[in-house]
């Protein structure tokens, strides 16, 4: 049977924490519950599922790419136009280090930003089930449950104090 998506909107964080406990208690796995909030809460405040991420790999890969490009740029230009200037030998390491360093850091930073977007699964084409009040201080619980569980989830959220429960149209 198909899954149904629900968005319960709450005013108070405590209601959300309670609702999350109830929902998990009713047998909905934590992976199928998500939270939308207008600002970050301490990690695990709602007992939410914490998916894995590999953000730390991105800067390393980016740094490697940046370093290689830097090496290509500095070494390549000197080989392509071999001219000793100011008594500095061709392919001398100290000045090349500077450009390679900058490129390494640039690669790492660009890759980190891309990594943040990728791991956050952004950009998204459409917002889907969402409510504008979330950026005004409301907190939303997104339930992705099979049809038969969805009604129970809606009841649980209402009981915990949800002001409104929206359905995916």
């Amino acid at each position: 049977m198909a899954n149904r998506k629900l968005l319960g909107l709450f005013q108070e964080p405590q209601q959300v924490a309670d609702a999350m406990n109830e929902l998990k208690g009713s047998g909905i796995p934590a992976e199928d519950l998500d939270i939308y909030s207008g600002s970050p809460f301490p990690e695990g405040a709602f007992g939410e599922h914490e998916p894995h991420h590999r953000l730390y790999m991105f800067p390393l890969v980016g740094a490697l790419i940046g370093f290689s490009l830097g090496l290509l740029y500095t070494a390549g230009t000197q080989i392509a136009y071999p001219l000793v200037t100011g008594g500095k030998p061709l392919l001398s390491i100290p000045p090349m280090t500077i450009i390679m360093y900058e490129n390494t850091m640039l690669g790492a930073i660009i890759a980190t930003v891309l990594g943040v977007l990728f791991e956050s699964r952004l950009p998204k084409r459409s917002l889907g089930l969402y409510d504008e009040r979330i950026t005004e201080g409301y907190i939303g619980i997104v339930v992705d449950a099979p049809e038969e569980k969805a009604d129970e989830a809606e009841k649980l959220m209402k009981a915990a104090g949800a002001e409104e429960v929206k359905h995916e149209s």
């Binding site: 998500d34 939270i35 939308y36 909030s37 207008g38 600002s39 970050p40 809460f41 990690e43 709602f46 939410e48 914490e50 998916p51 991420h53 977007l117 791991e119 956050s120 952004l122 950009p123 998204k124 084409r125 459409s126 917002l127 969402y130 979330i134 950026t135 997104v142």
Partner: peptide
């Protein structure tokens, strides 16, 4: 970019 504000 379609930001939702999930804990993740």
């Amino acid at each position: 970019l379609g930001w939702h504000g999930s804990p993740h």
